[in-house]
Amino acid sequence: MSFFWEILQGPWETPSQVSWNLQIMIMGSLVCLSCGLVGTFVVIRRMALLGDAISHGILPGIVLAYLFTGSLSPGPMWIGACLAGLGCGVSIEWLSTRTPLREDAAMGLTFTSFFALGIVLLSLQAGNVHLDPACVLYGDIGLIPLEKELKLWNYTLGNQSIWSTGLVCLTTVISSFVLYRLLLVTSFDLSLAKSLGMPVLCVQYGLMLLLALVIVASFESVGVILVLAMMILPSVSSAFLFDRLPPILISCVPWSILYSIGGIHLAHWTDFPISASMALVGSILFIPCCLFGPKGGVLRKSNMQTGQRIS
């Protein structure tokens, strides 16, 4: 019992520890929430792997922006990432339509090449503490509290990274609220979207831009591969709990808080990297959803029947 108590209380014992971990928790929740919202749309459009590809493909853009400006400020990095992501998307599209290569091969080829380019560029600038391959691969959310404080006039507002991620998160929330209907219809039935006169391509590219924005924002804390976990896990877990899109989107909020708190505790207990622990907590939480979820869970009797009927 005391063992559990220790795990539960571990990260929150002293005030300074609380403030340190609270910052990590807020950061983690913001990252998870923005990833989860964008990820829900990405998953229902069956573009999960494209999301993976783009999260790798934007690396050279980020690195170049960093090499040019010499700082990790999100503005130039976002522009660089968008350009690289655009290049990645265009070349996937071009290769799969104009050459005999299939889409999956085009995708695998493009994003790995871009990623390799990014890593090589990164290592040209050796001895870099802020941006190194480890950060690219699993981020260092644990260092977030060390970021500069944001100062506005004479008031200290708190951590700069948290503010910028919060801004991105707000953008995601607002756009998924405003564009909800466009995203819903274009994902569900393209022909209907067209016959309603919706700008299908604009929506597609808008979502891609949003994806790039979110990936850049979470790049520093979780890296390019774990961001995939944050995108897919919330919506896929919720898909077993709800059968309408709005509750799935809203459920991203509790999920993201759960992931970040769980991640902090797990990391505190086991000394795992926090970002990877967050993803791990998400995967562990996915299992009961998948098995016992009321909407299509594997071990639910009623769902087994409907499953048989559909197949």
Binding site: V178, V185, S187, F188, L196, D243, L245, I248
Partner: peptide, 29 residues
């Protein structure tokens, strides 16, 4: 559309689908 072309696991209810038909009349936002 043809029945096979629809993703039947998509998280929408029958009502939601029918309401989509109204979007052209209500505007997108």
């Amino acid at each position: 559309p043809q029945r096979e072309s629809v993703d039947w696991d998509f998280p929408v209810t029958a009502m939601d689908v029918v309401l989509m038909g109204r979007f052209g009349h209500t505007g997108w936002f």
